[in-house]
Computed example of a mutant assay.
Amino acid sequence: MPEKRKITLKDIARELNISVSTASRALKEHPDIADETIRIVKAYAKEHHYVPNVLAVNFRKNRTYNIGLIVPELVHHFFSTVISGAIDTAKKHGYNVLVSQSNDILDDEITACRTMLASSVDGLLISISNETFEGEHIKEFLAEGKPVIQFDKITDELETPKVTVDDFEGAYQAVKHLIGQGYSKIAHIRGRKEVKNANERAEGYHKALEDHGLEYSSDWVKVCNMINEEEGYQFARELMESPNPPDAIFCITDLVALGVLKYLKEAGFRVPDQVGVMGFSNWKLAEIVNPTLSSIDQHGYEMGVNAAKMLIHNINNPEKREEENLMLKTNLIIRESSNRKKFQN
């Protein structure tokens, strides 16, 4: 049995003996169209299951109402909250979000970007991989007049608006808190030295030590490559088995901090009495591990909302695009892993 053909706007116009433009405006309840005409057209469309050809409309407008979003990891709690904020905001403005991940690998990011471009997204939100520096593949969007907003992990090689958090200040406050709890030998398990936000967190760590007259030792700084739990565990073991072990560890992310906590627990160290631990990102897991993990809240959902708003504004206003950067403030979240004075009282 042949498939029934879908009714078109031309069919409605022909059957009701009106013009296509009148039928179209009636369906949109245009004020220039008589109420009776609107009623008749809408009733006919409903009876015959008329569905607007959105693709054709968008094609005429040179718009798909799709935006791309690329993150290093989909399962990462911080990025999942960014995605939620972006999707919720896009939906309110009539846009869909196509999401992909780079796995923190440049080649995968290039593939994701070019797939998005081939899909004719109207713009791109991206948190770059640890291997991305110049971003020539991202510049392909700009060359086609499509706006790009970088968020969280960014490169200054790309002249695009950026939405970030104050990584320096967040790290500074984290270390200042540890110092206030009586820790004086504070280590840092940091991110790659070529990654901008990792460097800013490391600078905040170093500045807090300097401002409070505490010892700094390069032996207490470990550099992650994969930024995962396994590295946290391994580096914690190296630090605590060294001749001059620290009494607190500030970690680049909560995931690394979970590895640190796992090692300390297995090795018999008491947290926070003997060793304090501080993460960064404020994953949901930070609230349920034992002991609960102190962290820095990056406000991922708010970042997603602001990045999406900025991108949609730039899509809708090509002649008046927003070029300024937005830096969000972080919050210190104090939990059991660093709250030594509470446990000593």
Score class of each variant (00 low, 15 high):
1 M>D: 15
4 K>C: 11
10 K>P: 05
12 I>F: 10
13 A>C: 08
13 A>H: 05
13 A>P: 02
15 E>I: 06
19 S>M: 04
21 S>M: 15
23 A>G: 04
26 A>Q: 05
27 L>S: 01
28 K>M: 12
31 P>L: 03
37 T>H: 04
40 I>Q: 07
47 E>W: 09
49 H>F: 11
53 N>A: 10
53 N>Y: 07
55 L>I: 15
56 A>S: 11
63 R>D: 02
69 L>F: 02
69 L>I: 05
70 I>G: 08
72 P>M: 00
72 P>D: 00
74 L>A: 14
75 V>G: 13
76 H>V: 11
84 S>G: 08
85 G>F: 02
86 A>N: 00
87 I>A: 13
88 D>M: 11
89 T>F: 04
91 K>N: 15
92 K>W: 03
93 H>K: 12
100 S>N: 11
106 L>N: 08
107 D>K: 14
110 I>K: 13
112 A>S: 14
116 M>A: 13
119 S>P: 04
123 G>N: 06
133 F>S: 15
135 G>T: 07
138 I>Q: 00
140 E>W: 10
143 A>G: 01
148 V>M: 05
149 I>S: 03
151 F>G: 05
153 K>C: 11
154 I>R: 03
162 K>D: 05
162 K>R: 14
166 D>H: 10
167 D>Y: 01
169 E>N: 15
173 Q>I: 10
180 G>R: 06
187 A>R: 12
189 I>Y: 08
190 R>H: 11
192 R>L: 12
193 K>E: 14
194 E>N: 14
196 K>Y: 05
199 N>Q: 10
201 R>N: 03
202 A>G: 02
202 A>V: 03
205 Y>V: 06
206 H>I: 12
207 K>F: 09
207 K>M: 15
208 A>I: 01
210 E>F: 11
215 E>M: 12
217 S>D: 11
221 V>N: 07
230 E>W: 06
231 E>D: 06
234 Q>C: 09
235 F>M: 07
236 A>R: 01
240 M>H: 13
245 P>M: 04
257 A>R: 03
257 A>D: 02
261 L>H: 06
264 L>C: 14
268 G>Y: 07
270 R>E: 13
271 V>Y: 06
276 G>I: 06
278 M>V: 09
284 K>C: 09
284 K>Q: 14
285 L>F: 10
287 E>V: 06
289 V>T: 15
294 S>N: 08
297 D>L: 13
309 K>L: 00
312 I>Q: 04
313 H>Q: 02
315 I>F: 04
315 I>A: 06
321 R>M: 12
322 E>V: 14
322 E>K: 15
324 E>Q: 11
324 E>F: 02
325 N>Y: 09
326 L>E: 03
326 L>A: 07
327 M>I: 15
335 R>L: 08
335 R>I: 10
338 S>L: 04
339 N>V: 06
344 Q>A: 13
